[in-house]
Amino acid sequence: MRARLSPGLLVGSGLVLMLLLVLPTLALLLRSARPALGSALLDPTVTAALRLSLTTTAVSLLATVVFGTPVAYLLARYAFRGKVVLEALLDLPLVLPPVVAGLALLLLVGRRGLLGAPLAAIGVHVAFTSTAVVLAQLFVASPLYIRSMKAAFRSTPRSLEAAAITLHATRLRAFRRVTLPLTLPAFVEGCVLTWTRALGEFGATIVVAGSLAGRTQTMPLAIYAELERNLDAALAMGAILTLAAFGLLLLFRRLTRSA
C-alpha cells in the first residue's frame, strides 16, 4: 500500500479543473497583449475609471481597517448574548448575491430609503455618489477583513498580552507591541482580500451608485459599458485588473511565507 496517491493520477484528474481555472485568464491576457491597448488606456473613460477605483477602494480599505479591527477584536475576545447571530449577520454580505446587497443599500440610502429620506430632508444625498460606491465596497468586502482578523486574534495567546502587562506595559502598548505583530500575516491577508474584492465590486455598485463616468463608474462598471462601445478599452482594463490581482496574491504568498 502506498501512502500517497501517485502524482500522475492527481495531475491527470485535476488537470480539467486546473485548465478551466487558468485558461480564461490566459485567453484574456493573450488577447490584450497588443500595442493598440496601450493607447486604449489613455481613453478618458479608462483613466477616470482607474482613478475612481483607486480612490474609492483606498477609502473603503482604510475604513475597513479602522472600524473592522475593533469589531474583530471584540468578537474574538469577548462572549456576549446574541454573538452567534451577530457573527452570522456580519458574514451575510459574503454569501448574499451582490445585486441583492445593492438593492438593500438602495432601499436604505435611496431618495425614499430608510435613512435616505431623512438625509434628503437635510440636503444630504448618498445614492448615485462616490460615497455610495464606497458604501457598496464596504458592505461586500469588509467582512473578509473581519473574518481574517477575528481568526488571528483568537489564535494569539492571551497569556502573551498578560505577560507584557505584568512587565509594566499598558494594555494599549501590549496590544500594539505584542498582539498586532503576531496578527500581521492575517492583517495582510485581510487587506489583500478586502481590497481585491472591493476593486472587483460590480453588482452592488451598479444598483446603488449607478454608472456615471468620473463619478460612480469604477473599473468593472466601465469594462461592462465599454464591452459594447470600445472593446480595446474593456480588454485593457480587464488585463490591468487581472495583473493587479495576480501581483497582489503573489506578494501575499511571499509575505506570509517569510513571516
Binding site: L106, G113, F128, G210, A225
Partner: peptide
C-alpha cells in the same frame, strides 16, 4: 443633473420606480 447611465432602459425606469431617482 444626470447621476447615472444605466445598462438598459428597464433598469433606468426601475431607478424611478424604486424611488431612487427623481
Amino acid at each position: 443633473n444626470i447621476v447615472s447611465r444605466e445598462p438598459n432602459v428597464r433598469q433606468t425606469a426601475a431607478k424611478v420606480a424604486l424611488g431612487a431617482a427623481d
